[in-house]
């Protein structure tokens, strides 16, 4: 059993929407990171939910920065701290738009240079802060304010793009599995160099789900296999326990789609494409896990 510290690193009354997955994830990220941490936050929901000056939500320093700039800011911060001999964790907490779209150049640069920081993307699959416009991470079929009939192209495979940078540590997670998040952040921060964790974070208003369903929908994503929890430490690729169980008998993705208002315009044909994409990805992941085990 994972022992998670009882001390809360977030103060009360954040100005999130009810049932925010990104804040739930951050609660456990900060418990894992501890007080010797600086958060770097580009434009995203988490730049707004901190509250209004002079109040703050976090008990660690938070540096807000421009939309495209998170990874570069963390690079400078980490280099300066290391030059001073300080080991302070530098953690980026960015949305999917700030990571997969506008921030991807800075992210790629920082990963390639081998900067010592942890980049965490909380993925609510759209530009949530500006009112749910489609992002590169919006999945096929999802309604957003700029895809009123559902997105017609696939979600960008951010993890494969990041993986091409050969990081010492990379993982996926979901806000519905806090112990998994806690353990992954702990492990990531124990490894020098660039680390990346991609967290699926359900968004009740954006996904058009009741606010008490955040955890349940996240679990459905994992159980259907549309979101897979894994980690990669250097070349060792491991499927995490919740997904290992789910992959044995994945729930049809249709149930996940039907539970969310954003997929209400998905017809049978698109649903079949989504299912086929899930099946294909699960096969790829199973193969990668098996190959990684063989080379052990």
């Amino acid at each position: 059993m994972t022992e998670i510290p009882k001390e809360e690193m977030l103060l009360k009354c954040p100005s999130t929407c009810a049932g925010c997955g990104s804040l739930l994830a951050l609660r456990y990220i900060l418990k894992a990171a501890g007080k010797d941490t600086v958060l770097v936050i580009p434009a995203c929901c988490n730049s707004v939910i901190q509250g209004v000056y002079p109040y703050m939500l976090h008990t660690v320093p938070v540096y807000n920065i421009a939309f495209a700039a998170a990874a570069a800011c963390a690079s400078g911060m980490s280099e300066a701290l290391r030059a001073k001999g300080e080991k302070t964790n530098v953690i980026v907490y960015a949305g999917d738009g700030g990571t997969a779209d506008i921030g991807i150049q800075a992210l790629s640069g920082a990963l390639e240079r081998g900067e010592d920081f942890l980049y965490i993307c909380y993925d609510n699959e759209a530009y949530g802060n500006t009112g749910m416009q489609r992002s590169g991470a919006t999945p096929l079929g999802a309604i957003t304010t700029t895809t009123p009939n559902g997105k017609t192209v696939n979600k960008k495979d951010l993890d494969r793009i990041v993986e091409a940078h050969n990081l010492p540590y990379q993982a996926t997670a979901c806000s519905s599995y806090p112990a998994d998040i806690y353990n992954k952040v702990k492990k990531a921060l124990s490894i020098p160099g660039p680390k990346f964790i991609h967290i699926l974070a359900p968004c009740p208003p954006g996904w058009r789900i009741p606010s008490e369903k955040t955890v349940e929908i996240g679990k459905m994503a994992v159980k259907s296999g549309i979101w897979v929890l894994w980690e990669k430490e250097y070349d060792k690729f491991t499927v995490s326990a919740p997904s290992r169980a789910a992959m044995k008998r994945p729930v049809p993705v249709g149930e996940y789609l039907k539970a969310q208002g954003r997929f209400r315009k998905v017809d049978e044909k698109t649903a079949a494409v989504i299912q086929a994409n899930v099946d294909k990805n699960l096969k790829k992941i199973a193969l990668e896990a098996a190959q990684s085990e063989e080379t052990e």
Binding site: V40, Y63, I65, A66, A68, A69, A71, A72, C73, A74, S75, G76, M77, S78, E79, A80, L81, K84, Q105, A106, S108, G109, E112, R113
Partner: peptide, 17 residues
């Protein structure tokens, strides 16, 4: 860095320490 946007941003991140 990989761009001037990042050059100035990295300077900002370093300077605030």
């Amino acid at each position: 860095v990989e761009s001037e946007h990042s050059a100035m941003t990295a300077c900002i991140g370093a300077s605030i320490t």
